[in-house]
């Protein structure tokens, strides 16, 4: 698939973001996205399907999202495509959490 993920040789993407003593995860949500993806893709989704999901992220979004934002987008795509969750369920839960947390 010829998409924005096929980055080899592309120019203009800037300096390498080198971070000293980098933690494994930069936030609790990154760790959770990794763990939920790991748990579901080792059980339900073969690795090629997860890669394909990441490669279907729209180009603009792919290039502007952080690494674990891309994982989140792929996870959400697979969970909804397979019918484990619906997009409406996710949006409703976000609204509910926002109300209870504010």
């Amino acid at each position: 698939m010829n998409g924005p993920h096929d980055l080899g040789g592309m120019q203009g993407l800037g300096a390498i973001p080198i971070e000293e003593n980098e933690p494994v995860f930069h936030s609790a949500w990154e760790a959770k996205v990794f763990a939920m993806s790991f748990a579901t893709f080792s059980t339900f989704f073969p690795v090629d399907e997860t890669r394909h999901a990441a490669e279907r992220i729209p180009a603009g979004e792919y290039l502007s999202a952080s690494y674990y934002e891309r994982w989140l987008a792929a996870l959400e795509l697979l969970l909804t495509e397979h019918g484990w969750l619906t997009p409406a369920e996710i949006e409703d839960r976000i609204t509910h959490l926002r109300q209870t947390e504010s």
Partner: peptide, 18 residues
């Protein structure tokens, strides 16, 4: 993003998927 992740996690846990 954190809120979205929390929403998905809570749904997956509730449904016994993770």
């Amino acid at each position: 993003i954190a809120l979205r992740v929390k929403a998905i996690e809570s749904l997956l846990v509730e449904k016994g998927i993770v």
